[in-house]
Design a protein around this nucleic acid. Structure first.
Length: 598
RNA sequence: GGGGUGGUAGUUAAGCUGGUUAUAACGCCGGCCUGUCACGCCGGAGGCCGCGGGUUCAAGUCCCGUCCACCCCGCCA
């Protein structure tokens, strides 16, 4: 078949999805894809689709014999330009499920600008297609209206962010993508330097050091929407390249960051979702979050909080419990409403959930009219059981689930169990958006494998002033001026007030067991900059992709990234990564040590 | 590195304890059809059952290995 050339008269005058009764009588030119064709032999209906939606085009042999002759060849996803007149649909043929359903376009001329092979999967919204197929033909998947809606929303989000920072006097400064590999943190993506054989750049895990340097350079308020790269294993909410809303400010303390960022949240929630954010956003200490919810990013849309029974259940009775308590462990539990009738297998399933968090087992107590029923009941005194029931607040019909283990394991297991049950029992109101600041994170955490302290946030995070003396005596209990923003149980941002004094920074490196020579080699420029008048400063970075994901109700980051990577960090559309020419490698002074497959 | 789920036509799935020619729906191709909108009606084509090996008279089905996709743990300052 011969295709029509794209002539000036084929240029669009209006989007398909924008046509309304107010356009009745007007001549329009539409450009779009054939979403569906209904050929009645005589009359042909074509649903023409573009970015803004779809509209029904009617091709009548009596109206335009030429257009009708062409219509016979039309297939799904052919690209058309249609000139025609908007008219009201005959009474009784309106389609109320379509925004354009009261009108249709009567085609006068029709240009077939391109044809399409039969598409490998249906673009219908209700068709459920395997993700690997969708990702291979990502350009087709991206045509789906619901996917396009996500990218429209994401673009609106990014625009709101830029406008907010612009209005508040922030400067957008670009930072390098080819930069220096730094120790600590995630694995780097490396880029070989051809002109410096044997040497490598790293792609930034974040522009952390550059934004701090910008503060030292006097740029005061910086914000950038920027790509970051981390070579770690993927998850539904983790991609190797992702986008941060990166922010840094000078001459500020934590409250200034909170206030400014609460303004940002209010702005984007208003612009993207038309939701009002209640300010100030609640704050919770890290320790409280762990105690009450078992995680540092609590979903506060529902209760089901964790209670501590260490004192209560370790005293005499059950030896497993008392031994764990004696070793410094904890005995904690959650009280689940209405689950006392759970079967053996249902309880076993809950135990499996707890085990993912590391728990060795899950104890349970069923609250009845008479008291607490449990295989463990015989190990405890009547008063203990009564006290447990009292403290748990369990009513008849409720189920108390108990984990006894180290603090970390108990938190991980019960936190996971809590989310699992909250979801399963429909305790989460999905229409809610709960924002929360989590503050006072530990400065350091003990790295069991390397047997040394490592920075929980990053090595440039300032300790709380009142905890400074503890640096020498009890580093593990030092809290940091670090904070995360949590939305519905998801970490959407995190930051800190930075160290701006060289002596404190040097002590930090000392604690982290980074010797002065190594520190100079890796961060020499930062340490030196600290000697030339570094202002007090701090900042934060938000995960733009994660925000877009939550705003769209997506289950995976891949849904809100136009060209995402698979779990093995490959791109099914381009087939990246791939082998390169030997000559390319020679130029880069690189030899590959992987044996060739077959 | 580890645990789990899945892989059968272009797509989505069925195929039980191994047993004639591997089913269905949608899509595709041909024909008919002037008010449909998941249009309808008639006819047709379409398969390396992910890949490799094994057990067996016989494997889509059982066993071993492997690849791919997804979820999770570790990892992610």
């Amino acid at each position: 078949m011969t295709l029509d050339a794209f002539l000036p008269e084929h240029k669009r005058t209006i989007y398909c999805g924008r046509i309304r009764p107010e356009h009745v009588g007007k001549e329009v030119v539409l450009c779009g894809w054939v979403h569906r064709r209904r050929d009645h032999g005589g009359l042909v209906f074509v649903d023409l689709r573009d970015r803004e939606g779809l509209v029904q085009v009617v091709i009548n042999p009596e109206g335009s014999a030429e257009a009708h002759a062409k219509a016979d060849a039309l297939r799904v996803e052919y690209v058309l330009s249609v000139r025609g007149t908007v008219r009201r649909r005959p009474p009784g043929t309106e389609n109320p499920s379509l925004p354009t359903g009261d009108v249709e376009v009567a085609a006068a001329t029709l240009a077939i600008l391109n044809e399409s092979r039969p598409i490998p999967f249906s673009l219908d919204e209700d068709s459920d297609v395997a993700e690997n197929v969708r990702l291979k033909y990502r350009y087709l998947d991206l045509r789906r209206p619901s996917i396009q809606a996500m990218f429209v929303r994401r673009a609106r989000l990014a625009r709101a962010v830029r406008e907010y920072f612009f209005e508040n006097g922030f400067l957008e400064v670009e930072t390098p993508v080819l930069t220096k590999s730094t120790p600590e943190g995630a694995r780097d993506y490396l880029v070989p330097s051809r002109v410096n054989p044997g040497m490598f750049y790293a792609l930034p895990q974040s522009p952390q050091l550059f934004k701090q340097i910008l503060m030292m350079a006097g740029y005061d308020r910086y914000a950038q929407i920027v790509k970051c790269f981390r070579d770690e294993d993927l998850r539904a909410d983790r991609q190797p390249e992702f986008t941060q809303i990166d922010v840094e400010m000078s001459f500020i303390d934590r409250d200034d960051i909170f206030t400014m960022m609460e303004g940002l949240m209010a702005r984007v929630f208003r612009e993207v979702l038309d939701v009002t954010v209640a300010r100030p956003i609640p704050r919770m200490g890290y320790r409280e979050a762990m105690d009450r919810f078992g995680v540092d990013k609590p979903d506060t849309r529902f209760a089901l909080e964790i209670a501590d029974y260490t004192g209560l259940l370790s005293a005499a009775g059950f030896r497993v419990f008392s031994e764990i308590a004696a070793k410094g462990g904890v005995i904690r539990g959650i009280t689940v409403p209405g689950l006392a009738e759970s079967s053996r297998s249902e309880l076993a399933a809950l135990e499996e959930v707890a085990k993912i968090g590391g728990a060795a087992g899950l104890a349970w107590f069923k609250a009845t009219d008479k008291g607490l029923a449990s295989p463990l009941a015989k190990f405890f005194k009547e008063e203990q059981l009564a006290a447990l029931r009292e403290k748990s607040g369990a009513k008849a019909g409720d189920l108390i689930l108990v984990v006894a283990d180290t603090f970390d394991v108990a938190c991980a297991s019960l936190g996971r169990l809590r989310l699992h049950l909250g979801e399963k029992l429909g305790m989460i109101d999905k229409s809610l958006y709960h924002l929360l600041w989590v503050t006072d994170f530990p400065l350091l955490e003990w790295d069991k494998e390397e047997k040394r302290w490592s920075a929980m946030h990053h090595p440039f995070t300032a300790p709380l002033d009142e905890d400074l003396p503890l640096l020498a005596t009890d580093p593990g209990s030092v809290r940091a001026k670090a904070y995360d923003m949590v939305l519905n149980g998801s970490e959407i941002g995190g930051g800190s007030i930075r160290i701006h004094r060289k002596d404190v920074q040097s002590r930090m490196f000392q604690l982290l067991d980074i010797d002065p020579d190594a520190a100079r080699l890796k961060f020499g420029f930062l340490l030196e900059a600290l000697e030339f008048g570094a202002p007090p400063h701090g900042g934060i970075a938000f995960g733009l992709d994660r925000l877009a994901m939550i705003f769209s109700g997506a289950k995976s980051l891949r849904d809100v990234i136009a060209f995402p990577k698979t779990q093995k960090a490959t791109c099914l559309m381009t087939d990246a990564p791939s082998m390169v020419d030997v000559e390319q490698l020679r130029e880069l002074s690189i030899r590959v040590t992987v044996p060739e497959k077959r």
